[in-house]
Computed example of a mutant assay.
Amino acid sequence: MVCKLPTGSFSSFYLQLYQIVEDRSSDQVISWSKTNNNSFIVWDLKRLRSDILLKFSSVLGRNLPEFLAKLRSHGFKPVFKGPGELEFEHDDFARSPLMKKMMAKALSDRIERFDAQIKTLKCRLKAKKASLKVEILFQNLRI
């Protein structure tokens, strides 16, 4: 069995962030901007820290400064609106049917990669079992 891993076009960060912003159940915490299709707004910093960053810390960051640093490193820019308001924009991160389709494809690619990794591990396990059987046969022949 030959195991090949496909390559994805979106990083986990973009996928996870898109899913969270797109998820209607998180709209009180983080949602798309109503005036700009290329930006999202953080409405509740406390719940962002406790609900979202805590749950998705491995991808988004463990705390607010790390999350903000990851946003900057992925090309997001703050939109200055006023004190206490956090809005971030990115030209390629958009609320649109095309973007939704691209993100769904990227998520599908991740699932395929995961499946391929599982197949690879199964191949290795099968080979290891076969190797152990041969080793046991040789040990039994020496007795």
Rank of each mutant, 00 (worst) to 15 (best):
R95N: 13
G82L: 06
A106L: 05
S96R: 09
V21T: 14
L141Q: 09
K4I: 13
F76R: 08
D51A: 10
S31Q: 12
L68I: 09
P97V: 06
R62F: 04
L125R: 13
L86W: 09
L53P: 07
R95Y: 13
A94I: 15
S9E: 06
C123F: 07
G82I: 02
S50W: 03
G84H: 08
I41G: 01
L48P: 02
L5C: 08
Y18V: 06
N37P: 11
N140G: 01
D115C: 07
R110K: 11
I111F: 05
M103S: 05
L98F: 10
D27P: 00
S108W: 07
S25K: 12
E112K: 14
I41Y: 02
F76L: 09
R49W: 02
F76T: 02
K126W: 04
K81Y: 01
L5Q: 09
A106I: 03
K119G: 00
P65A: 12
E66N: 03
L125A: 08
K105E: 15
C3L: 10
E85G: 00
P6W: 12
N37Y: 11
I41R: 10
V59Y: 04
N63P: 01
Y18A: 02
V42C: 11
L5R: 11
F10P: 00
E135C: 08
R113S: 04
S131L: 05
K133S: 05
Q139L: 09
R47E: 14
R47D: 12
W43R: 15
K119P: 00
E89W: 03
L5H: 06
L68Q: 14
F56D: 12
L141Y: 05
H90E: 05
D115E: 13
L132S: 03
L132D: 00
L132R: 05
F114S: 12
C3H: 10
D115F: 06
I118F: 03
Q16F: 00
T7A: 06
N140P: 00
F13A: 15
D51V: 15
I30M: 14
L141P: 02
I20V: 15
V79S: 03
E85C: 00
K70T: 05
S25D: 04
E87R: 10
S11R: 13
L107I: 11
L68F: 14
H74I: 00
F93T: 10
H90D: 09
L48S: 06
Q139Y: 00
S39L: 03
E66H: 08
G75D: 11
K119C: 08
S96I: 11
H90C: 08
Q139T: 02
R95E: 12
K55D: 04
S96Y: 07
K4V: 14
T120Y: 10
L64F: 07
T120M: 12
L121Q: 04
V42S: 05
L86D: 01
T7K: 08
S57K: 14
S50R: 13
F93C: 06
I52L: 14
A94N: 09
P6S: 07
I52V: 12
S39H: 03
A116W: 07
L98W: 06
K55A: 09
D44W: 01
N63I: 00
P6Y: 12
N36H: 11
E87W: 02
A106W: 04
F67S: 02
M99H: 10
D109Q: 13
L54Y: 11
M103G: 09
Q28Y: 01
E66L: 04
A94M: 12
